[in-house]
Amino acid sequence: MNKVFIIGLPRTGTTSISVAMLDYGFKVAHTAYTQEAFNLADIISDAPCFSDYQQLDKLFPGSKFVYLERDLSLWLPSMQMLINKMKAQLDPNTGTFHPVLKRSFNQTFELDKTDIPDALTHLEKCYLNHRQQVLSYFDGRDDLIRINIRDEQSLTKLLTFLGLEVKGTPQFPHLNIGRNVACWDEYKHPNKVSANSSGPLRRKFFDYVGKRATT
């Protein structure tokens, strides 16, 4: 197994699954903005994985992918809150967030193509489009698993998918509940990988992920 990419959208449980995997010995990056972060981590979630999974599939052959599902009635208000909190900093020109994060969000949620980016109808369309694209891309393959972390068997299914021994009925922690968005930053663990890990850069990597992902 090469890497494990968590390609569910924000507010589907990416922080919960990232924290859970730390205790199974994996080095985990919740968001990755440098090549070194991708090199160091065994498991990478959130941006840019949810937008760039096709490119990452080619860059890291033999990897596994985890698509996180969430009931729309729960995901929509949670995502609406997140977009409202982040939209000023996601602006491609004036926002202060990392360029990889801005590109990933703007590509997936079309923030620059709609007058009301937090409209429930718009967000629902983005969710359904993303899900359909993922399912179409991985159709007929066995390297994708779909789970909903609210399902009490979901962590067992994931561990089995990753070839790990399962003891009892392990459960995912439920983090970033309500308006919380930064539990990962507050969580301390030696297996955490910084999204901005520094190391030797290969321009080809960033050209491939950054440029190809927008075509």
Rank of each mutant, 00 (worst) to 15 (best):
D23S: 15
I149W: 00
Q55D: 11
Y127T: 00
P61C: 11
F50E: 03
T34M: 06
D52V: 12
S51C: 06
P92E: 06
M86I: 01
A47I: 12
Q35H: 05
S154R: 02
A32W: 09
D139L: 10
R131E: 15
N39A: 14
L74N: 14
K87R: 10
A41R: 01
L74W: 11
T121A: 00
I149Y: 07
F26G: 10
F97V: 09
H130V: 00
F138K: 08
K58Y: 07
F26S: 07
P61N: 05
I116G: 01
T31G: 08
G140E: 07
N106Q: 10
L82N: 01
R141K: 15
Q54W: 04
E124D: 01
I44D: 07
S51H: 15
L59M: 14
M79D: 01
K58D: 12
T96K: 13
A47T: 12
H122D: 02
D112V: 12
R70P: 04
T96L: 14
N84F: 03
T94K: 15
F109Y: 01
A32Q: 08
Q54D: 05
R131K: 15
F26W: 01
C126F: 03
D42Q: 05
K64T: 02
L144Y: 11
R146N: 13
L56T: 09
R146H: 05
L76H: 00
S104K: 03
R141T: 14
A32G: 11
K27F: 09
S73P: 02
Y67K: 07
K27Q: 12
A41N: 08
Y127C: 00
V100M: 14
I145Y: 06
P48Y: 04
E110P: 03
A29W: 05
K64H: 04
L111N: 03
R103F: 09
T114R: 02
L56Q: 05
D52N: 13
D139W: 03
M81T: 14
P117K: 00
S45Y: 13
A29D: 12
D115L: 12
Q55T: 11
T121W: 01
A47Q: 09
L68I: 08
I83Y: 02
H122R: 01
I147Y: 06
F97A: 07
T34H: 06
G62I: 03
D91F: 07
A41Y: 04
L72F: 10
F65N: 09
Q133S: 15
S73E: 13
K27M: 13
I43W: 01
E69D: 15
N129V: 05
F105T: 02
A37V: 14
Y127K: 03
K58F: 12
L144F: 07
I43N: 05
I145A: 06
H122L: 04
